[in-house]
Design a binder for these strands. Structure first.
Lengths: 173, 173
DNA sequence: CCTTTTTTGTATCAGTCACTACATTATCCC
DNA sequence: GGGATAATGTAGTGACTGATACAAAAAAGG
């Protein structure tokens, strides 16, 4: 439900109704609405999110791996129309401070993964390229939330991917 | 205030306090919270938003003009830290149906402007390129909201702009 | 100056938010 | 089966949401 409608748009009443439990049981189990969200984020990071560690390989060109991350984002963000976009990216935009902080933890971790991966071989462009990756992924998540399916997202992801290739081939030269 | 904190995060109480008026005067003047937001959007589209009509020129290369739109977005979205991102783009993400609809009107108009501009000279790629423009602009607005300044946004905008050049030069060949 | 109309402030509307005190029911251990 | 413990349902907390009824004050018109 958090993924489908966003943290702010889901009320505790919605959650308890969906779970078939009453508020006291909900708070006994999860502590708070943000507490449940934290656990959902954890689960999402383990299974539903982009597998950065597997995609960012040291034995392949940096630009290729980064482009594959973007394409995987397009695939996952547009996969299910009833849960569009990235749970983490969207969470960082919540109006609730606790939820936002929880989502930022995961986002910052993923961002650091990307940054370090680039920095290992192109330290001078790591900041710039990481920003670009962030921008495109935030954009893809937003477009998914607008209803765009995987095909349309993929076209934009591939375009951004080609921009990455270009960027790295220039750094090489 | 809508631009600074987002439609959902601003309450009528905030608005009446800031305006120095009481709720009845507020509703007499604007009809509703969404009514005021509509007028704010109107004003924003006339003065604060990206001047698409001026930027999308028929006497210059399509890719150059589109790249300039993205750079102008970077400039405006990151200009003031207390009102980051695009009021329209962010408005389309509101949880309030009325506010979202009002923002979508302006967003769709801008999108149509871009689409028609591209379609006039590159009909086969208009959909794809428009999606890419939307994606990057949504991403830039999101990054601005995360606190990135104009310089960082501009770097990503320029990268995306170079991707556009490449795309059009290939279509040419 | 007095009446009429408009604007404003006081106080509050019903509804929803996340969250909890309390009592009852179910479960477990012996 | 009986007593301690844990989980649950009932009901409601205060705070806030957007939006108003009503009356007092201000402005306009003669």
């Amino acid at each position: 439900m958090f993924h489908a409608r966003g943290y702010d748009a889901v009320s505790v009443a919605d959650l308890t109704a969906a779970l078939g439990i009453k508020p006291p049981s909900f708070y006994a189990a999860f502590g708070s609405k943000a507490g449940l969200y934290s656990r959902v984020l954890e689960r999402y990071s383990e299974s539903g999110a982009i597998p950065f560690a597997a995609l960012l390989r040291a034995d392949r060109p940096v630009a290729v791996c980064l482009a594959e991350v973007l394409e995987e984002a397009a695939r996952r963000y547009g996969a299910s129309a009833d849960a569009p976009g990235c749970l983490v990216v969207e969470g960082t935009r919540s109006n609730d401070p606790d939820a936002q902080a929880a989502a930022c933890v995961h986002h910052d971790a993923a961002e650091a993964l990307i940054h370090d991966y680039i920095a290992a071989r192109f330290p001078e462009g790591a900041d710039r390229i990481t920003d670009f990756m962030d921008t495109v992924m935030a954009g893809l998540s937003a477009m998914a939330r607008r209803g765009h399916g995987t095909e349309r997202l993929m076209a934009s992801a591939k375009m951004a991917g080609r921009a990455l290739m270009r960027e790295f081939s220039e750094d090489h030269a």
